Lab assay of single mutants.
Amino acid sequence: KKVIATKVLGTVKWFNVRNGYGFINRNDTKEDVFVHQTAIKKNNPRKYLRSVGDGETVEFDVVEGEKGAEAANVTGPGGVPVQGSKYAADR
């Protein structure tokens, strides 16, 4: 997939743990970017499923997906693991 931007910061608008996807609002352009659970590179080690939490600040790359921009290599700011959704089960 073609990389559009790297190391972008954004805020998770919403993320559905059961369906495994959601949207991140970019801090720079204010665009909403699709995020799939497979794009989460550093999950919270205490969580079973990969997820990001609503309102969480994340860092990610933006790539060209089939339906427009989507997030890739999602981590917390500075490459730390994401916090994850409060609806995702703990280990």
Results as ranks from 00 to 15, higher is better:
residue 57 T to S: 13
residue 22 G to L: 00
residue 18 R to F: 07
residue 13 K to N: 09
residue 3 V to M: 09
residue 21 Y to R: 02
residue 18 R to K: 14
residue 68 G to T: 07
residue 80 V to K: 12
residue 60 F to Q: 01
residue 21 Y to W: 12
residue 18 R to L: 11
residue 67 K to L: 10
residue 17 V to R: 08
residue 25 N to V: 14
residue 7 K to Q: 14
residue 81 P to W: 12
residue 54 D to Q: 15
residue 64 E to W: 13
residue 42 K to H: 10
residue 36 H to P: 03
residue 37 Q to P: 02
residue 81 P to S: 14
residue 84 G to E: 06
residue 4 I to Q: 06
residue 88 A to T: 08
residue 46 R to V: 13
residue 15 F to D: 02
residue 59 E to A: 08
residue 87 Y to L: 09
residue 6 T to Y: 15
residue 43 N to V: 09
residue 86 K to N: 09
residue 42 K to S: 13
residue 8 V to R: 06
residue 20 G to L: 02
residue 36 H to G: 04
residue 58 V to W: 02
residue 52 V to A: 05
residue 72 A to V: 14
residue 74 V to G: 00
residue 22 G to C: 01
residue 81 P to C: 10
residue 54 D to H: 12
residue 1 K to Q: 04
residue 66 E to W: 13
residue 14 W to E: 03
residue 13 K to I: 11
residue 87 Y to C: 08
residue 79 G to I: 04
residue 49 L to D: 07
residue 21 Y to L: 03
residue 32 D to W: 02
residue 45 P to Q: 10
residue 45 P to T: 14
residue 85 S to M: 05
residue 46 R to F: 15
residue 39 A to C: 06
residue 15 F to H: 01
residue 49 L to R: 07
residue 41 K to H: 12
residue 41 K to R: 10
residue 87 Y to P: 07
residue 32 D to P: 05
residue 1 K to P: 03
residue 48 Y to M: 11
residue 29 T to E: 03
residue 73 N to Y: 08
residue 15 F to T: 01
residue 74 V to N: 01
residue 30 K to P: 03
residue 77 P to Q: 08
residue 69 A to W: 11
residue 79 G to K: 08
residue 81 P to M: 11
residue 42 K to P: 07
residue 90 D to M: 11
residue 44 N to C: 10
residue 89 A to S: 13
residue 61 D to W: 04
residue 66 E to D: 15
residue 36 H to E: 03
residue 44 N to F: 05
residue 45 P to A: 13
residue 50 R to L: 08
residue 70 E to G: 04
residue 48 Y to T: 09
residue 72 A to K: 14
residue 20 G to M: 04
residue 38 T to P: 00
residue 40 I to M: 03
residue 44 N to E: 05
residue 12 V to C: 08
residue 42 K to W: 09
residue 48 Y to R: 12
residue 83 Q to S: 10
residue 85 S to Q: 06
residue 10 G to L: 00
residue 65 G to P: 00
residue 3 V to G: 05
residue 26 R to T: 05
residue 27 N to R: 10
residue 89 A to D: 12
residue 75 T to D: 02
residue 31 E to R: 11
residue 14 W to L: 02
residue 50 R to P: 08
residue 11 T to I: 13
